[in-house]
Amino acid sequence: MTADKDIAGMLAGDETEALARLHARLAEQAASEGVLDIAYRTHDTPVGRLLLAATEAGVLRVAYEREEHERVLANLADTVSPRILRAPGRLDRLATELDEYFTGKRTGFDVPLDLRLSKGFRREVLSHLADIGYGETASYAGIAAAAGSPRAVRAAGSACATNPIPVVLPCHRVVRSDGSLSGYVGGVEAKRKLLELEAA
């Protein structure tokens, strides 16, 4: 009986490996034929499992588990393209950079970005987030001013709250004028962890 279970386990393992190889081959073929618009994968980090998604242009989305990964993928299918496939290879560079960031070996990200999910003033705010240095913070008022609209503090907060590429575009470095932490797409605890990591 035990031998039968061992054989069944080996067969199941072989089948899993075969399916993984088939999936990788299909993803590679889809990319080479230009029918893979959005590749995605998940990646475990100290702030939870992140969903990573990218187009050929660059990183499109980083999502926390609390955003519900399935819902995020469905939204990308509706707003960008339904041609989405789990194709980790396109996101290997981002995964490596995230690992380096979380182990303190990296202070900024070099991956190309696809910012099509943000428009107008929100996009302008996002373009200034990388100007906030590692280990530093800025106020919502400061980021609104940097984006050219000093009175648009609420809109700057909204832009940070809807940042489609958190961690990579460091909206966690934007805090209230008194230095206190406010809402964050990954939760206030994730924001605190990121700031503590950068302060270490």
Rank of each mutant, 00 (worst) to 15 (best):
H172Y: 11
G58A: 00
T79W: 00
A95N: 12
S139H: 01
S149K: 15
A159P: 12
T2Q: 11
V59T: 08
P150D: 03
G179C: 04
A12H: 01
L169C: 07
R122W: 07
S180G: 12
S81F: 02
L194G: 04
P46T: 05
S158T: 14
I143M: 10
E100G: 14
L169H: 13
E28A: 11
E56M: 02
V125T: 10
T137H: 03
Q29L: 08
V111P: 10
E68H: 15
V111H: 04
D37W: 14
L197G: 12
R176W: 14
N75R: 10
A159L: 01
V185I: 13
A74L: 09
A27H: 00
A57M: 02
R21W: 08
G48D: 04
D6G: 08
L195G: 14
A141R: 14
A87S: 15
A155Y: 07
A18M: 12
E56G: 06
A8Y: 01
A53D: 03
D110Y: 04
T137P: 07
A77I: 14
E136W: 09
A27I: 00
C160N: 11
L169R: 12
A53F: 02
T79G: 01
R173L: 04
G34P: 14
G58H: 00
A53P: 09
H128G: 06
E124D: 13
E189K: 15
H172G: 09
L22V: 09
L36M: 05
I38A: 08
G104L: 05
A95S: 12
S149V: 08
L126S: 03
P170T: 13
P82Y: 05
G13A: 05
L181Q: 15
L22Q: 09
P88R: 09
L115K: 06
T42A: 03
R123P: 07
L76Y: 03
A190V: 08
D4T: 08
G108N: 13
S177D: 13
D14W: 14
A27C: 01
G58V: 00
V167G: 06
Q29K: 13
A156S: 13
A87E: 08
L94S: 04
G148A: 02
A144Q: 06
G104F: 05
A141G: 14
A155V: 04
R154Q: 15
V125G: 13
T45D: 11
A31D: 04
A12I: 00
D99W: 10
L19Y: 08
V80D: 04
A200H: 13
G157C: 12
L73G: 03
I84R: 11
P82D: 02
L169S: 13
L52H: 04
